[in-house]
Structures are given as C-alpha cells and as structure tokens.
Design a protein around this nucleic acid. Structure first.
Length: 164
DNA sequence: GCCAACGTTGGC
DNA sequence: GCCAACGTTGGC
C-alpha cells in the first residue's frame, strides 16, 4: 500500500528562482536548498514523500501568488550548502556526521494557466484556513490540505490537467 | 523602502 | 528557562 499522497506549498522569490526557471531547468528539477527554519526542515525531513504535490508560490512578487505546480521527486537528504563556507547558507555549527539542514528535490509540472494572486486566495472562503493567507505567516514550506489543493488547482486552471 | 510579525540567539 | 535584542521575511 503506497503512502498517502500529501500536498505542500513552497515559497520562492521569482527574481531568484521562478516557476519558469524551474520548468527550464535540466529535467525540470532542482534541489530545494537554503532552507534554514526548523519547522520547514522537519517537513522536508519527516513528511515530504516522492510524488507529493507542490503549489509553487511566488513571494516578494508583484503580486505574490500561486504560479504553478511541481512535485516531490527526492525525499529529504542533507543540504550541502550548510557545509560550504563560501555559501551564504553556510552553518558552522552543522557537522557532516550530524547534518542540521535537509532539503528535497522537486520537479516542475506546469505553470498556472491563470496565475492565482494572494488576494484571490484571501478572498476565497474555502481557503480561509490555508496557512499562506494567515497574517504573519512566513514559513517557506507549508502543508496544504487535499481540499485546498483541489480548490487552488481549480482557480489556477490546472484542474484535470495535472495528475497529482 | 517601511515595518509588523516571527524565529533565533545569548546574557543572566 | 526567561526574555530582550536582533535578524529575517514578505506584504504593502
């Protein structure tokens, strides 16, 4: 019996790495390195599974919102940037024999035919409990419920076009 | 560019 | 183990 599929929201600044960057990357894949928050780390280390669906959220954008969909293609493993003194995400307290920070790999699936702005997420009563619409919510890796996933896919124009 | 909200750090 | 100070996030 395969494990139950889960859904997630990942934030990325489009100036740094947008959904288009992801879809043009080799194999449409990337490693999700640089996360330095324990809650986000725990989700990646403990809960994200191959095949899970990912809402790709553009933060610090004008406007912010859901720009596409991706999926998890590799489960949690150590983020090498934590050991690289030249990397901005270097963590001198983390040791290779006991890595502190983990990452997953994701693969782009599709850009939203209709970008879903944060304002539209906030205006949708079905999404009022969604983490990303909560005031002060900064977590860059957030769980998404199946109902939220379906509703956001419907809003994005991807419903029925994505096998997730 | 501002600043509210939040997570982390470190002195005690 | 408290909590003030600090750094970061991210909408606006």
């Amino acid at each position: 019996m395969p494990a139950k599929r889960r859904y997630w929201l990942l934030k990325s600044e489009p100036d740094v790495f947008s959904i288009d960057h992801l879809l043009k990357a080799k194999g449409k894949r990337t490693c999700w390195d640089g996360v330095r928050n324990y809650t986000a780390r725990n989700f990646m280390r403990d809960d994200m599974q191959v095949g899970d669906g990912v809402l790709y959220y553009h933060s610090n954008a004008k406007p912010p919102g859901i720009a596409g969909v991706a999926k998890v293609v590799k489960e949690g493993y150590p983020d090498p940037t934590q050991f690289d003194p030249k990397d901005s995400h270097f963590d001198p307290k983390s040791k290779p024999e006991d890595p502190r920070w983990m990452m997953v790999d994701i693969q782009g699936v599709a850009a939203s035919p209709s970008f879903v702005p944060l304002d539209d997420l906030k205006a949708n009563a079905k999404l009022e409990a969604m983490a990303v619409v909560q005031r002060g919510q900064r977590l860059s890796v957030q769980p998404v419920t199946p109902a939220e996933w379906r509703e956001v896919l419907r809003m994005s124009g991807l419903k029925g076009k994505v096998d997730l």
